[in-house]
């Protein structure tokens, strides 16, 4: 498997990875951050030098999970929340493939919460890109597990009384070995983190904060796509600076960068060693 990292990249490289015959433009709203993430994923994959046949992209249901439809890789569009379970099966059967999962906040943490923590626990070599827009966008703006407290959604019309999940903390606690967070404003950083996640052997989670101005932005008076993306710029704090800040100062901020990296055994390797040992014994 190629691991050479390309330095120079043409601006039109994205067009080489689109599925032929698929109707562009995309299904997403004008200015949706999911398109920026798709742009970043293509550029990161191009830099790894992997061929299209070596990549499997699995997704569940939701706005974010429409992405493999447009990208010309081996695609697996699965049931709601179960993309990580299907991806685990693919990786287990064909460990030589590079398996990616594109999932949304509701897909990964509510419907597929169980699969998410267990994929983290196994530390299987899957790159999970979690597009967090704080809301269920496709079905009309219902509150998701990441909808912040006191934020509005169509199911929390008097503001959200619940506390919200932090996917990165959940993943670190569950045992993922590469955890990063970024926003769609920081597109070059996102590209770099996705690239490093692809090269990392083990479960890598890249949480990308995306904008849903159609529902979350409108209900919370955050303005249009441009205003929300500029708001991510204002609210984000690099991890190096966040270490010297107090918890009060970090209230409402988005800590970006590589949050956690650990070299540990990977599930497919361990399982193969078990197979070898048992076969020798028999």
């Amino acid at each position: 498997m190629a691991t050479a990292v390309k330095e120079k990249q043409k601006s039109n490289v994205v067009l080489d990875y689109l599925r032929p015959g698929k109707a562009m433009p995309t299904v997403w709203c004008a200015g949706c951050g999911h398109g920026i993430v798709m742009n970043g994923i293509i550029r990161a994959i191009d830099k790894t030098g992997l061929s299209k046949d070596e990549i499997v992209m699995a997704s569940g249901i939701g706005c974010s999970s429409r992405m493999p439809i447009y990208l010309d890789f081996n695609a697996l569009h699965t049931t709601h929340g179960r993309s990580l379970a299907f991806a685990t099966g693919v990786k287990f059967a064909r460990p030589e493939l590079k398996v990616m999962v594109v999932t949304g906040d509701g897909d990964a943490l509510a419907i597929g919460g169980n699969h998410f923590i267990h994929a983290c626990r196994r530390n299987i070599d899957i790159t999970c890109i979690l597009l967090n827009n704080y809301i269920y966008g496709m079905t009309g703006g219902q509150g998701s597990p990441t909808t912040p407290s006191q934020a509005f959604s169509t199911t929390t019309p008097y503001d959200n009384a619940e506390k919200h999940f932090e996917p990165t903390k959940l993943a670190i606690a569950a045992g993922a070995s590469y955890v990063a967070r970024t926003t769609v404003y920081h597109a070059p950083q996102m590209e770099k983190l996705i690239l490093n996640g692809l090269l990392h052997r083990g479960f890598s989670l890249i949480e990308v904060i995306s904008n849903c101005h159609t529902y979350f932005g409108r209900l919370n008076r955050q303005g249009d796509a441009v205003k929300m993306i500029n708001d991510f710029k204002e609210r984000s704090v690099p991890i190096a600076r966040a270490k010297s800040m107090s918890a009060e100062e970090l209230e409402g901020k988005i800590v970006t960068g590589l949050l956690h990296k650990k070299e540990t055994t990977e599930f497919c390797d361990v399982y193969q060693s078990v197979v070898d040992r048992v076969q020798k014994g028999m």
């Binding site: 601006s11 689109l18 798709m38 742009n39």
Partner: peptide, 18 residues
């Protein structure tokens, strides 16, 4: 500077120079 085509959600911007 690449900002516009890296941030284009619809992959609509390219450049023949780069």
């Amino acid at each position: 500077c690449t900002i516009c085509w890296v941030h284009c959600p619809d992959l609509a911007i390219t450049s023949s120079y780069k």
